[in-house]
Design a protein around this nucleic acid. Structure first.
Length: 1177
RNA sequence: GCGCGCGUAGCUCAGUUGGUUAGAGCGCUACCCUGAUAAGGUAGAGGUCCCAAGUUCGAAUCUUGGCGCGCGCACCA
């Protein structure tokens, strides 16, 4: 045991002692306070002002729901890159934002009020309802802000954009007005997914969230065909539907023209009788349907289902059916008598309804190959109607048939269901059809059907509605081109999920017939119906004859707390009217709709600044984003809304025309260049996280238990960010010791001994700078790496190589790879540098640069100090708290005088690695020696020769030594001997004693050259005399291998030489070497081993007696073993030194504590007693 | 139904243009250290790389088809 005398000297600013067992959560709280009070984030920006911009967009979260661990992932990634780029010298503003509009907010308020339908909202009053919505938006604001700060997400919350704020709304108005003026915003009559109870259409994204598996009735219905005179025949086409409620609005039957159809004849007698008995429909009365027409591929299935004697009696093409009239299942809209004809554009005429048409969408996947077309309730159905209308003279074509009211109930046009919700009428409708003999078959059909995502029991229906659309489909190719220039991570998003979505783009259903959202800024002339869009509130106020603004003013007067932002919201904005420019004495009135809140979020790249009404400079410098990141669900959400709006609005050259983006250099992408798409976080059970299932912990609990750094490291280092990760508390817990604690232990070790040895950089360095390599070089007592020992040069090599690799990875957004490199660097410091440097830290002398300084010791300190600081910087974007703590103690506080170091690690520059400090050979050799040590231990373990037992010799055979490997190892014999507790080390001169060499083909190299001959060559090489081939290679530089039918001349690098230990030796083999341990034990070695064992036992006793490591002891031994006694006597000095014993004799120590131990089979009683401290140190 | 992703050790996950002996952490077992010490280290055991067929000299890796899981999409009439 070596003892460093402790003498405390007057200190400059010694490092503060470090707790061995860190309390990360409370430490993080303190760091958080320090950042807040010191305005460190602001300072990190100020420091980089003028630097290259790194533009980040915050995708606005909704603050009316509680944040969960998934949000922590997003916020961690969003924090990492801006922090990293800032440390790299770039200027990265981070403006927060909140998504505040839309259905989720309205539904929350409805729940609170205990109401549901639009009528109830109207009854409650739109004005108070809107006020409730605005308040509700901030419900969980505190939790969100707390989470943001607690996880260390640096973003400017004080200047957040808010989608309901007037400036934001006005930006959106500008965007909408621009689109309107370009003809890209239009009002269309379309089929939308309609939430009848809520009285609004929903976006596809909203619809997608509400699919549930349900069993619906599925019916096969006969549509009797008419003859040329318009009379019903006994032949019918059979259509299939899972929505019987759409049958009263039937308009066409669609077939595919090129498809084969068959006629099935029903020969069962009861079919006729049955139908006649009911005599239901007027025209069918008295007639039996005997023949059913269905698609040929589906006929067999239908026969099977109906279990009726149906025979094929005829065949025809779909085209033969096209144009035939039929009787619809209900006469809701059909007058009696033969079908009326309408005039076609081409001069001819034919019935406008209840006719068989040809359509490509007809498939034979299911059903009958004949499709019931109800244009009011299906998008493709509606398409058929539009096409048909185009064939007829204007005004004479088919009108839309619809007997369903917007509230989802049948109108009086359909008496069977009048006043009732359509889906509740399926049974009655089916019964009626059956009664009239038109029901061919019915069954239950299980499928997914959409329900309202906020009112889970309300099924959605497709419904025709006058609605506002954005003509995105016209920009499909432009959006694809824009997308092609974006760097997606993972890259399959580009061509896969997102690309596919763009390929199938449909116009954006923008309007919502709701209350809390950005009002659609379109005013309509009450007499002409002409429309115009208003781009701002100011533009509105400037309109002639403006009126109605007083409504808001009065409300404000009555309630001064009313937010001015509400002036641009319903109901106040609805009251604002002005003189029509289209007709005299007419007023312009706003349309009632608000817009899809996804448009808000997609407009944030400019709307966050209020652009173009304000914030021109900010927008110019902050567009497009270099980096955004959200979870995968945003492909159809924010990723799309941003891309679509930007592509439509800023196209290829609009921004250039405005003088924005002059230096962009390429037209696309905008508005973001790189997007990391995060995987979803699942609950502990692998299911979606849900509050009701309680399969995750609240973020706060994680922070309080493990800390934010632990969670961050778990996210960043655990897996690539796009894999869906299972929330796993154990994994979070385990991420602490693996990295954080290991780093902390090294730091703690350093501080303990730096304090002992007086290592105080501030006493040796006048200008600390950022304490990087070049700064430290100015310190007194600092020696250049080239003058330091090998271990120091190795450490600095690893450090600088790692920094370079990390930067390379982070620059391509591979934080997972960077974290792996960082982790192995910390492992190297902890398990090799510190361990191998202990002797130096414990050696005599000081490390304060004074007269007693031990230069090697000082080198060790400088090296570890530099390494720790650099690691802290490298790790700072990942784990900002613990690295700050380290920086505070080692740098900020240590240099707290007139010459200051940066006050926060986040104000320093990221290390990029200094190539001149990297010695590649040294790195390789150190890895080799570590492997030799590891193999030696493995060899010992296999022979049960514990490391405490010294052995005489270790021999190493290198498998494929490169130049200098062997001599380097020989020069480091002491190191190997020390690691393995052996007396001698040598590179084996007679390797053939211990090992045999075999050769193998290097398939990767030979494969491309030999192709099909490879197996023969491989076998020939394996069978060849390895020694002979190797000898030939050594002599000629090449060797020839023959096999039946061929031969090849091989270069040395085309062979792999494998070295295998021969049996009978204590050996272990690895990829680089075979290590052989001499297992023979001489009496002297055994004696040494016994002594080591005794020392070990004494040390354990010291520890169990809780002695301080400087306490001296007295030792007494008693043993009946002559061997043990002899060994102890021979090595008495060693025992005394190692255990800090002032005396070690073969007699009990008076009033000592005695323990009896078994020392490798030899009994030994040890008495131990602490010597009073006066004598020591 | 269509599309995207995933399936590797008991658990959580890596695996970089196809290449010979598939890795890490945790857990487990054994051992070491005892001056980072309620820490730390070393070693070991543990795998039909979901299944099948194909391409290839060679497949965890590429192709196709299954199966399972997750997510997304909707012309589910």
């Amino acid at each position: 045991m070596r003892l460093t005398p402790i003498r405390l000297q007057p200190l400059h600013r010694m490092f503060q002692p470090v707790r061995g067992k860190p309390d990360f959560p409370s430490m993080e709280a303190e760091i958080g306070r320090f950042w807040r009070e010191g305005a460190i984030y602001q300072k990190s920006l100020d420091r980089r002002r003028g630097g290259k911009r790194f533009v980040f967009f915050e995708g606005p979260p909704t603050a009316n729901g509680m944040p969960h661990p998934g949000h922590c992932l997003t916020r961690t990634i969003k924090d990492l890159y801006p922090r990293y780029r800032t440390m790299r010298g770039e200027y990265c503003e981070r403006k927060a934002g909140w998504d505040t509009h839309g259905l989720p907010v309205e539904v929350e308020v409805c729940k609170e009020l205990g109401i549901h339908s639009k009528a109830e909202i109207e009854a409650y009053g739109v004005e108070p309802f809107i006020h409730k919505c605005q308040e509700s938006v901030w419900r969980y604001m505190k939790e969100w802000e707390a989470l943001t700060e607690r996880i260390g997400f640096w973003i400017d919350l004080s200047d957040a954009y808010v989608t309901y704020h007037r400036s934001f709304v006005e930006s959106v108005w500008w965007a909408l007005a621009t689109l309107f003026d370009k003809g890209l915003l239009y009002q269309g009559h379309k089929i939308v997914w309609w939430w009848a109870q809520g009285g609004t259409a929903l976006s596809s994204g909203e619809v997608g969230q509400g699919y549930k598996e349900v069993a619906d009735p599925s019916v096969y219905v006969a549509f009797p065909l008419l003859d040329d005179a318009g009379r019903p025949t006994d032949r019918a086409v059979v259509a299939w539907t899972t929505t019987p409620w759409t049958l009263p609005s039937n308009h066409f039957a669609a077939v595919r023209a090129d498809l084969d159809y068959v006629v099935l004849r029903d020969s069962s007698p009861e079919s006729t009788a049955h139908t006649e008995a009911r005599g239901a429909s007027r025209e069918v009365a008295g007639r039996a349907i005997r023949e059913y027409v269905v698609a040929e591929p589906l006929a067999a299935a239908l026969v099977e289902k109906t279990k009726r004697p149906l025979e094929i009696v005829g065949r025809l093409k779909g085209s033969d059916l096209v144009g035939r009239s039929y009787l619809p299942p209900f006469d809701t809209f059909r007058p009696d008598g033969p079908p009326a004809s309408a005039a076609r554009r081409d001069g001819g005429s034919e019935p406008a309804a209840w006719r068989v048409v040809a359509a490509d969408f007809v498939t034979t996947d299911s059903g009958t190959g004949i499709v019931h077309v109800a244009p009011a309730f299906g998008e493709v159905d509606y398409g058929v109607l539009v096409e048909e209308q185009a064939r007829f003279a204007p005004g004479d074509g088919p009108a839309l048939l619809n007997c369903v009211a917007p509230d989802g109930t049948f109108t009086d046009a359909f008496p069977i269901g009048a006043g009732r919700f359509v889906k509740d009428c399926d049974r009655d409708i089916t019964r009626d059809i059956k009664g009239r003999g038109l029901l061919v078959h019915q069954e239950q059909y299980v499928h997914d059907y959409p329900f309202c995502w906020r009112a889970e029991n309300d099924p959605l229906i497709q419904y025709p509605r006058q609605s506002w659309f954005i003509r995105t489909s016209r920009f499909r190719d432009a959006m694809l081109a824009n997308n092609a220039a974006i760097d997606w991570l993972p890259d399959h998003i580009k061509e896969g999920r997102f690309g596919n979505f763009l390929e199938t783009n449909v116009d954006w259903a923008l309007s919502r017939e709701r209350y809390w959202g950005t009002p659609l800024p379109i005013w309509v002339c009450e007499s002409t119906g002409k429309q115009e869009a208003v781009p701002s509130y100011a533009a509105l106020l400037a309109k002639p004859g403006i009126a109605g603004t007083d409504v808001f003013e009065k409300a404000k007067a009555a309630n001064p707390a009313l937010s001015d932002d509400l002036a641009v919201h319903k109901p106040y904005i609805d009251a604002v009217t002005y003189d029509s420019p289209f007709a005299s004495n007419s007023r312009m009135r706003r349309v009632p709709e608000v817009i899809d809140c996804w448009f808000d979020s997609g407009a944030m790249p400019f709307a966050q600044w209020g652009w173009p009404h304000a914030g021109d400079a900010a927008f110019r410098s902050q567009f497009p984003a270099d980096f955004i990141s959200e979870a995968i669900d945003q492909t159809r959400g924010w990723f799309y809304s941003q891309l679509a709006i930007s592509t439509l609005l800023f196209g290829d050259n609009v921004l250039e025309d405005r003088g924005v983006l002059e230096d962009r250099g390429r037209p696309y992408p905008h508005p973001f260049r790189t997007c990391i798409v995060l995987g979803h976080m699942l609950g502990e059970d692998g299911q979606k996280m849900s509050k009701s299932r309680r399969n995750y912990k609240e973020p706060k609990v994680i922070f309080d238990t493990y800390g934010a750094d632990a969670l961050r490291w778990y996210f960043l280092a655990g897996q690539p960010p796009w894999t869906s990760i299972r929330y796993n508390e154990r994994a979070i817990r385990e991420s602490v010791p693996e990295f954080l604690l290991r780093l902390w232990n090294v730091y703690s070790f350093f501080v303990i001994y730096a304090r002992i040895d007086g290592f105080d950089p501030s006493g040796m360095l006048d200008v600390p700078g950022e304490l990087a390599h070049a700064d430290l070089a100015k310190a007194r007592g600092w020696r250049p790496a080239g003058e330091r020992g090998e271990l120091d040069r190795w450490m600095l090599s690893e450090l600088n190589a790692t920094a370079a690799e990390m930067v390379e990875r982070l620059d391509r957004y591979d934080h997972f790879g960077a974290a792996a490199r960082l982790s192995s660097l910390v492992e190297a410091v902890s398990n090799w540098f510190v361990r191998r440097s202990r002797d130096r830290f414990w050696a005599a002398g000081r490390a304060d640069g004074g007269p007693e300084t031990n230069p090697e010791k000082l080198d060790a300190y400088w090296t570890l100090y530099e390494t720790l600081l650099a690691i802290a910087k490298l790790a700072a974007p990942f784990v900002p708290f613990v690295t700050e703590e380290i920086w505070q103690n080692l740098a900020a506080r240590a240099f707290g005088g007139s010459a200051r170091a940066p006050e926060s690690i986040h104000l320093t520059t990221y290390p990029t690695g200094e190539p001149s400090l990297v010695d590649r050979d040294l790195v390789r050799w150190m890895a080799l020696v570590r492997e030799v040590a590891s193999l030696g231990r493995a060899a010992r373990a296999a022979e049960k020769l514990k490391v405490r037992q010294p052995l005489s010799k270790v021999e190493v055979i290198l498998a494929n030594p490169a130049d200098g490997d062997a001599s380097w190892l020989e020069e480091h014999a002491d190191l190997v001997c020390d690691e393995l507790n052996v007396k001698g080390f040598e590179i084996c001169r007679e390797p053939d004693r211990y090992i045999s060499r075999s050769i193998q083909a290097d398939l990767k190299k030979l494969g491309p050259r030999l192709g099909k001959d490879l197996p023969k060559a491989r076998d020939a090489i394996a069978k060849a005399d390895a020694a002979a081939v190797l000898a030939q290679l050594a002599r000629d530089g090449r060797a020839t291998i023959d096999w039946a039918g061929g031969s090849a001349t091989l270069e040395p690098e085309e062979l792999i030489v494998r070295t295998t230990a021969k049996p009978g030796w204590a050996a272990a083999e690895g990829s680089q070497a075979v290590v052989v341990i001499a297992k023979e034990l001489t009496p002297a070695l055994v004696a040494e081993g016994l002594v080591r064992e005794v020392v070990h036992v004494v040390q354990s006793m010291r520890k169990s007696l809780d002695l301080d490591f400087t306490d001296r002891i007295e030792l007494g031994f008693e043993t009946t073993s002559a061997d043990l006694r002899a060994a102890l006597e021979a090595h008495q000095a060693v025992v005394a030194t190692e255990t800090l014993a002032t005396r070690a004799a073969f007699e009990p120590v008076a009033s000592g504590i005695a323990e009896t131990h078994d020392i490798d089979g030899h009994p030994l009683t040890i008495t131990i007693k602490k010597v009073p401290a006066t004598k020591s140190g």
